[in-house]
Simulated scan of single mutants.
Amino acid sequence: MKGVLEEEGVSIPYFYTKLGRSTKKLAILLPGKEYTTQGPMFWYANQVYLEQNFDTLQFQYPFMDIEEDKLPKLVHGMIESFLQQHEYDSIHFVSLGLGSTIVAYSLKQDVFSNVQCVWYSPYIHQDSVLDALLNRPCKGLVFLGDESELVHEEGARLIEEKEHLIIAQVGGNALFESVSIEINIETMASIAATIKQFIQHQKIELIEEKTTIRVYFSLYGNNFPLDAVSEKLGLQPTNLDKDGNPIIPPIPTNHPYPESFYHVTDWELSTDDEESMDLEVQMSQIIGKLRSKVPVINELRDTYGLKSHLQVVLHVHYGKSPVMTLDKKVIEFAHQIQTEYIDFDVYVFPFDENLSFG
């Protein structure tokens, strides 16, 4: 919902997203001087808050001709007027640069209860903002760019000592108010995940992702009876796909998703995505269940005109690549059932060296 809020003769556009379900939580997004809420830092933050059952209110004052020293009082008045018309019992402020002066002013008024803050590169060189960070005990997550000219070294040291604040250093990025700000997608994903943890727990737990392996065996063809295959093999499949059925996206989305359909019928037996540094472990789990079924697999292949393949899905984190040996028993099994191929689907995730916590 788009609209305009007015205070002392000044009008500022806003964008208000209200969830279809009822919520008492609101995130107020206050961008920088030249960085709008459509920039990636605010776009991702907005999505995270919506996913966490918050309504969101985005102010659109960047590039407007408003005196900076008057902006905090004006926007604070607009926020108060807005909240008089809407009932919320939890408020989160998300600000960048100039927006932090608005948060500092609002916190000083002591009119909001149950307030938490996400600060992107706050103006800690300004006394009002530094005072708000140090002396207003609301929980806060502070992102500082170590290349920013606006990072006040003494102020940064002081806020790092405060227990109610979590300090995240975004290395290699100048988190300042500029339309040319650049943050790589991996770092942006880490920032979004950090905000999500902060919303849920008011603390950050550093979780190191582990390399995982999943192996699955697939029997596929045209419209064959899946139940008959399960019965013949004496195994319960981990996944079934039917020719002509719609393909459901793996991650729900509010955006239009082009409708598509399966073109083959598929019977699968799979391991879980398991932490592993040796492919032999997961491959043995699958082969161990199927080795005695070789005659049945071949009979099903001939009866229904089926094909088969073995698939390895590998997620490599922190450069920890597992042993990827295909031993004799795997090769023999693949030959005995005349499998089409053994495929490796490898996802290598980059090191995230651009986000650290003080």
Rank of each mutant, 00 (worst) to 15 (best):
L326A: 11
Q236M: 15
L310A: 02
P250W: 01
E209D: 10
T211K: 05
S270N: 12
S276G: 13
I337G: 00
P258Q: 02
I286T: 13
G288A: 07
V330C: 15
L314M: 08
T325N: 15
F217P: 07
L269E: 02
P256E: 09
V312N: 07
L300C: 08
R301H: 05
Q236P: 01
D241L: 13
Y220S: 02
K232P: 09
L314V: 04
P295A: 03
P295L: 06
L226M: 02
S292F: 11
N223E: 11
T325H: 07
D243V: 07
A228H: 13
L326I: 09
I337P: 00
Y220K: 03
I213N: 03
Y304S: 03
Y216T: 01
F261H: 07
L279D: 02
V215A: 14
I337F: 00
S284D: 15
E259W: 05
E209G: 13
R301N: 04
P252W: 03
F224G: 01
D243I: 12
W267V: 03
K329S: 12
I213P: 03
K320Y: 04
G234C: 01
V296W: 05
E274T: 15
E208S: 14
L219V: 09
L279F: 06
E280G: 05
F333I: 03
P322I: 02
M324Q: 06
S270Q: 04
K232H: 08
T238W: 05
P225C: 01
Y216D: 15
I287S: 00
G221Q: 06
E231M: 00
V312R: 02
T253A: 09
L240M: 10
N239W: 08
E268F: 07
L314F: 03
V323S: 10
R214S: 10
T211I: 12
V313N: 09
F217V: 05
A334R: 00
P249Y: 07
I331H: 09
L235R: 00
G234T: 02
M277P: 00
K320I: 14
S230I: 09
Y262E: 08
I287W: 03
F261P: 00
S308D: 11
E332Y: 08
M283G: 14
L235P: 01
Q311T: 10
E275W: 03
L206G: 00
K242P: 02
I207A: 06
V264F: 13
H315V: 08
T211W: 05
D302M: 13
L219N: 01
V281S: 08
L314T: 08
V281W: 13
L219M: 07
